[in-house]
């Protein structure tokens, strides 16, 4: 069984840690790397709270073993803001009441960041479909949806201004 040495990059910083093969990536990020922004909810891939970005794709970190992420590049919610500046998406979550207790928020932020990078102008239906992979037990979906829609609208305006 034994332990494996795992070297990976999280938010641009390299971590070298040892872990048993059975350690979930979600636990590894929190316990070995000390990044507790990634939340652990259901641990079987349903709630989406643990979503992180691995090599440019949003995935469930509770459905990967840490050892599988050896050599990979990971982004967690701690990596979003730069020099204390929230990203526009984070700012809109704040303004549109996109979070209540905040437990589901890190996962939703990571999914949405990845999703908007690949689909800059999603419809409301498409945003809802993307959000179907996340559970908010405060049931605060309305604010979450508004925050994401506002981000999409703001991006469109930015593109227009840059274009003109």
């Amino acid at each position: 069984m034994g332990v494996h040495q795992i070297r990976l990059t999280i938010n641009g910083k390299t971590f070298v840690e040892e872990a048993e093969p059975r350690m979930l990536l979600s636990d590894f990020i929190r316990e070995n790397c000390g990044l507790t922004g990634t939340h652990v909810g259901c641990e079987h891939g349903v709630c989406g709270a643990c979503t992180v970005i691995v090599n440019g794709s949003a995935v469930r970190s509770c459905l990967m073993f840490a050892v599988q992420a050896d050599g990979e590049e990971i982004q967690t919610v701690e990596g979003l803001s730069q020099n204390g500046e929230l990203t526009p998406l984070q700012q809109n979550f704040k303004e549109c009441h996109g979070l209540q207790c905040g437990f589901c928020t890190p996962g939703i932020l990571m999914s949405t960041s990845d999703y908007l990078a690949k689909n800059p102008e999603p419809s409301k239906k498409e945003i809802k479909e993307m959000l179907s992979g996340h559970l908010c037990r405060c049931t605060g979906y309305d604010g979450i949806l508004k925050a994401i829609q506002k981000t999409v609208e703001d991006n469109k305006e930015t593109i227009l201004i840059e274009g003109s």
Binding site: G45, G48, T51, S57, A58, V59, R60, L63, M64, S111, Y115, E129, M130, S132, G133
Partner: peptide, 9 residues
């Protein structure tokens, strides 16, 4: 199938 986040993996 599942959700965007599970289809990515």
């Amino acid at each position: 199938i599942g959700h965007v986040q599970t289809r990515n993996r």
